[in-house]
Write a protein that binds this DNA or RNA. Sequence first.
DNA 1: CCTTGATAAGGTCACATCGACCTAAAGTTA
DNA 2: TAACTTTAGGTCGATGTGACCTTATCAAGG
Lengths: 232, 232
Amino acid sequence: MSKYDGTAPVAVTVDLVIFTLRESALQVLLIERGKPPFMGGLALPGGFVRDHEDLRGAALRELGEETGVDGAKLHLEQLRTFGTPGRDPRVRTFTVAYLALGPDLPAPVAGTDAAHARWMPVAQALSPSVELAFDHQAILREGLDRARGKLEYTTVAAAFCQEPFTLADLRHVYEVVWDLDLDPSNFRRKVLKADDFVVPTGAFRAPEVGRPAELYRRGRTELLYPPMVRPA
Amino acid sequence: MSKYDGTAPVAVTVDLVIFTLRESALQVLLIERGKPPFMGGLALPGGFVRDHEDLRGAALRELGEETGVDGAKLHLEQLRTFGTPGRDPRVRTFTVAYLALGPDLPAPVAGTDAAHARWMPVAQALSPSVELAFDHQAILREGLDRARGKLEYTTVAAAFCQEPFTLADLRHVYEVVWDLDLDPSNFRRKVLKADDFVVPTGAFRAPEVGRPAELYRRGRTELLYPPMVRPA
DNA sequence: CCTTGATAAGGTCACATCGACCTAAAGTTA
DNA sequence: TAACTTTAGGTCGATGTGACCTTATCAAGG
């Protein structure tokens, strides 16, 4: 970039913050780096953007390589771009961070690119005991903040649920991501009053114990109005 | 990028969507391009990110060059990164778009980099009669959407007001950006009930006609709770 | 076969907020 | 002084919310 003509060595990558709900915890997909820098350390999945490849396309490709999941069915949105000089010790690197949300995604499969990938509770990944490569801790932090905020005024919570799902499943998403308890009755009232947040299927699912719950699918609404208020 | 090692010709730029209120209209700063491509056409201000320069730093520098304003006093946030192949016919270019909001900013000064810059009402810039270079129309559209949305649940509206300002000034921001009328009385109640959105100065300003209005300064709160609801 | 326990479904009620509207205060202009 | 304009502030019915209660429907156990 020294000549300001775009020919100096600059790299552009995408990094993914992939969240899912496993074992009643919000978990993030991390990979073990197989090459320097930060070899052996943990990092967010990601890679270089290829020629002729859209940014979103690159994110979808990485998503498929790391989780084996068809990203077309997940929620995927751009988070922010990080480009502080020195964040990659090798070359000036800009990374476009993406946030992906999905229902309980499969464990990474051995024998693939994803062999060195694993799920880790977000709380653990953000704790001082874990060190992530590059500035991935900051990216993860921002992904968490974004996800928490978006639950309030959008319907993305349903992206964490495998269809069909019960209202308890959906409430569970809020409770885990926000780390608090919600009143089942009031939650039900809000969700059903919001227009086309969820649509009933007429079918029911019997839990291990208790009354069977009706099953729902995602509605078409993206924006949640009125918003789900997050208690103090 | 063909070798995935970050040495292929790739350019990274920042582009700015700079909004201000002039003559009771939301206006955006556009420049007349002095070189190809799109020579002579209108475009958002922006430029290459330099070595050793932060993304935000590059945005602040361009802001100063184009408006002569010390960006430290404006609201500046990252919008999104655009990198569709072919968006720049010369070389693969990724642009990190920033959104800047400020009070009635000075007209561009002749004899500077900003000589070819001018303010244009956003409605006009987005109309079919105006063609912006590259994908700047899409970027502008997204900046407008972001600004409109952020007025709801943050206090950025105050960034459009020169301090000190009246509640009518602040209300005017909402009315212009949202293109609708708000009830002065209810607006007043909401703003004053929100904690530390604005702080009274005790001073008053006499308008051309009508009762003098109390003057306020920006408070420290960033998030507006409860949010300002946008009528349908 | 009925009780217990658990969860879903749905209702009640006091309270806060909101939109629509009204009144009073404090200036300027005719 | 009257008319007009804008700010400041209040009222009231409608609506949303949190806390809590009741009932329905299943499984498990006596």
